[in-house]
């Protein structure tokens, strides 16, 4: 060992000394540092705890049910799946301090329009209106109870079960047509709907009653019923409850 050190060139000894000094310092510093600086498991633990301690702002619907009667009303209507805070805003603070901090009570048309304005990107079953045409001066909640909103115009008997179709039709050019214009409904359909069915049109000529060139219905778009998409039945390309006008 000693002879090895003696044989080692002087320059190398000096360099090694510096290296040992630097590396030693690094190792020493690393060893002296507390775990809070170096232990990543500890970092993960503290982060998770900090994240969990973050204050909650939205209380969740169950919290509202304890005090508010309207909650039950809402549960029976079309808005049953809506959380209270969807419209009334974050209300955790209100739930902790009910008398002083009141949540939002949106009453403006614009608020309802945020979801219910017609938009071609929205799913077709979703109730939508054109706010410019739909009673433009009235506030929505004058006619619709926000906790139990109901469509007011479609014939009640059909929409009770076919609500989605009724809503879709409401937006379509066929809005003025009664269901019975196209469907003949036997009385028993209401009692045993699956056994006794309403009729559905089966021929192109049925649509042709309004849409063929010979028809007297002026407002309906016209096609040449003999050549227009001759292979197909009309409803293979056009959904009758929401016929796209091409």
């Amino acid at each position: 060992m000693k002879s090895f050190l003696q044989k080692m060139p002087d320059a190398l000894k000096r360099v090694l000394a510096v290296f040992v000094l630097v590396a030693g310092t690094a190792v020493l510093v690393r060893a002296v540092l507390p775990a809070s600086l170096t232990d990543s498991r500890l970092h993960i633990k503290t982060t998770v705890e900090r994240e969990m301690a973050h204050p909650v702002r939205y209380a969740g619907s169950e919290a509202c049910a304890d005090c508010h009667e309207e909650y039950k009303v809402k549960q029976g209507g079309y808005h049953k799946n809506l959380s209270c805070e969807t419209c009334h805003g974050a209300a955790k603070e209100h739930s902790e301090n009910p008398s002083d901090l009141k949540p939002k009570l949106p009453r403006m048309r614009e608020f309802c329009a945020g979801c219910h304005t017609y938009n071609p990107s929205r799913p077709s079953g979703f109730p939508q209106v054109n706010p410019a045409a739909h009673n433009p001066r009235k506030v929505c909640i004058e006619c619709h109870n926000p906790h139990d909103p109901k469509p007011t115009r479609t014939p009640r008997e059909c929409s009770a079960c076919h609500a989605e179709i009724a809503r879709t039709k409401e937006l379509s050019p066929h809005v003025q047509l009664e269901c019975t214009t196209c469907h003949t409904v036997p009385q028993d359909h209401k009692l045993i709907p699956r056994s006794v069915r309403a009729t559905i049109p089966s021929e192109r000529s049925f649509c042709g009653k309004c849409h063929s060139k010979e028809s007297g219905r002026k407002e309906a778009p016209k096609v040449d019923i003999l050549t227009h998409g001759e292979k197909y039945l009309c409803w293979q390309c056009h959904y009758p409850h929401m016929p796209e006008v091409q």
Binding site: V56, R57, Y58, G60, L82, S83, E85, T86, A90
Partner: peptide, 10 residues
């Protein structure tokens, strides 16, 4: 609780 986005999704 549910995430806030899920909670308010109508």
């Amino acid at each position: 609780l549910l995430p806030a986005c899920v909670e308010v999704c109508p």
